[in-house]
Design a protein around this nucleic acid. Sequence first.
DNA 1: TGGCATAATGTACGCGTGTACATTATTGAT
DNA 2: ATCAATAATGTACACGCGTACATTATGCCA
Lengths: 396, 396
Amino acid sequence: MATRKEVAELAGVSEATVSRVMNGVGPMKEETRRRVADAAARLGYQLNALASGFAKGRSGNIGVVLPHVPKVRMFSTYYFSEILSGIGDALHQAGYGLLLLYRNPRERYDYVSLYRTRRVDACLILGASSLPEEQASVHALADAGLPACIVDQRFEPRGRDIPFVGADHRAGAYAAARHMLDTGRRSLGFLNGSPHYSNSADRYDGYLAALADAGLAPDPDLLFEGNYSRTSGYEAAGAIADRLDRLDGLMCANDRMAIGAIQGLRERGIDVPDRLPVIGYDNADASSLTDPPLTTVEVPFYEMGRLAAETALGMLSGDAGEDGPAAALQGGPAAASQSGHGGSALPDDAAGAGSPDNLEDIAPPDGPAAVSSPGGAARTTGGLLLPTRLIIRRSC
Amino acid sequence: MATRKEVAELAGVSEATVSRVMNGVGPMKEETRRRVADAAARLGYQLNALASGFAKGRSGNIGVVLPHVPKVRMFSTYYFSEILSGIGDALHQAGYGLLLLYRNPRERYDYVSLYRTRRVDACLILGASSLPEEQASVHALADAGLPACIVDQRFEPRGRDIPFVGADHRAGAYAAARHMLDTGRRSLGFLNGSPHYSNSADRYDGYLAALADAGLAPDPDLLFEGNYSRTSGYEAAGAIADRLDRLDGLMCANDRMAIGAIQGLRERGIDVPDRLPVIGYDNADASSLTDPPLTTVEVPFYEMGRLAAETALGMLSGDAGEDGPAAALQGGPAAASQSGHGGSALPDDAAGAGSPDNLEDIAPPDGPAAVSSPGGAARTTGGLLLPTRLIIRRSC
DNA sequence: TGGCATAATGTACGCGTGTACATTATTGAT
DNA sequence: ATCAATAATGTACACGCGTACATTATGCCA
């Protein structure tokens, strides 16, 4: 392992000069720069990231926190892998490392220690819910005023808050419900996810808004609840079948529950879409594999990850970022809509089973103080909401 | 941020004593230990992992390398998320961090720099293939003699080699083919994956062995090739349909291709399983969601990740580990078969669609010098092969 | 009580870097 | 040619910890 001292000797300069060359700081003669670079190359010298981080008091790593319960596959892997991919690209581009952290949603998680021990410089929190332990953990992090970003989950505003980046699920659910209503449904059921997620509430809002716009009153008996797992959708099929005489359409808060519900309905001899049209949400991988392929709402998860990472990084590099995640949208080197993944590009093999249809023009009447911004994302207090898109297939 | 000095002063001891208490090294009076612990607690002091790692020359992080090509979802997310989960649990238990690294499979990747810059103490390589750039990168890592472990991919032995942990895909494919043959198929096609993966070759071996045991000769015209993506299976359906008159069964090297193939076949009016029974491989999430549910081979991905992590950690903590990954099996605090995930436990909602059937007794005649070991895993030169299990559903 | 082995603690330094500050070289204007 | 401003480089130290080694306390046996 070559060290800075050896490079300095070989190049005939001081260690400080080597340091400056390696970091590209301060003015220096081009010839000196080259001599040092050559010496470093000849010795195979590279900065010791550990020592460098130690001297700067920064690890150079961003913690990405995922929920994880042993033996239970609670969440869609599609969801996380897309977001992670976006995060990974953004962090790599900025020269940061991605430290993957698993958290048990039912236990208190000490975010602050991660910073105190310098394991991470910032955190991105994925799959958070408002379970008490979880909320308390996040509040402690917010109170400490540490750089972080919450992905796709909003907490109730309080003094200091952590910025979030999510998707406009209210608009997405509105578009889904609207599609059902526009195609003649009058009595639309809704299989929602756990109320611990702000997602669920947002989707419910969109559902209600679409009903209201169609002059329909919501029927509490047509509201079902699962926990976003396929099994919970499968199990909900019983209750749904019981209300079948009053239903002419079913909307689900995610694809996995929709798939489970379709399975359960089919086992009861209820055909989808002939007897009961169903619409999902997420545009997960599996949604195009099912029979029938699932009409669903595409969510820009990759972009979400990217923006969340850029938001957190923005809080690190000055700005004393009280601006929230919108700053990343405007100032980032690669803004959301230009990064080449997501947006209008179809993910891998999503095509071929139904014609995607951009229905951005069908917007919900009034979001939560949302204002559309240049990237197509809406900015709300303390957060950013990315636009979603309806994908029409054959299930409704 | 409290520092060691303040703790030492508050406790009335030297900094060295604080250090010893925090790390639990050397003999010390219980009262001293308590005094220091109290002082640390009162000041909210925690070890600075960065400084500690710097002093020890170790980052405390293990790099986990994943293939990643922008805009292309090349690999099953199920596969990686299961393996990652196993890795995460093992590393967390050992107090190590998980640094997620994305690699472009088509470019050379400088593993060695990761160590030289002290970003990681060891690496776990996932989704590796024998593409030239990739192979060269791995060889350089092996030549440097650095601690690492390759997951589910074997490279040809050479001087110094990196240990690997994988699954016995030869036996798995044998069981799958055998199941087909035992249920009356005589003319079994095989849709294999890219030959850049040792997986593919192993599965092909198992397929051939089962044919041979049934007294059948392989028909080269019934061998198809995809790239493990659903799309490639979908596209292969054309060639498969062309040979339909000579086929009475189709075996696929993974579930995604099987699902794609079934879709393609159905579009050509070929019913599965009535006209052509199909069997998959992996027991991915989606395999139980399809119509018909897919008979497949379960692979203990979680265990695979756990064992790989334990193998790499074993190379760190002495043993000058020339023993290969088997050491982790015997010596680890939680051996494979006891860790509670995988093994006989069904992953989440895999049940309910067909009766799983353990066919471990149907073993291939002769593996590549494989010897079964206490954990049920076979140990081969330089690597460990975990057992697979046939899961019978309705697609064949 | 003395001596010795061992436990328990303190002292001192190195780990490799970033950077504030001091110093020297260079340039340009007068 | 002189001086000042600025560029370019060197010097010196802090960052927080682990640990080899020195030192002191303790217990045990004769």
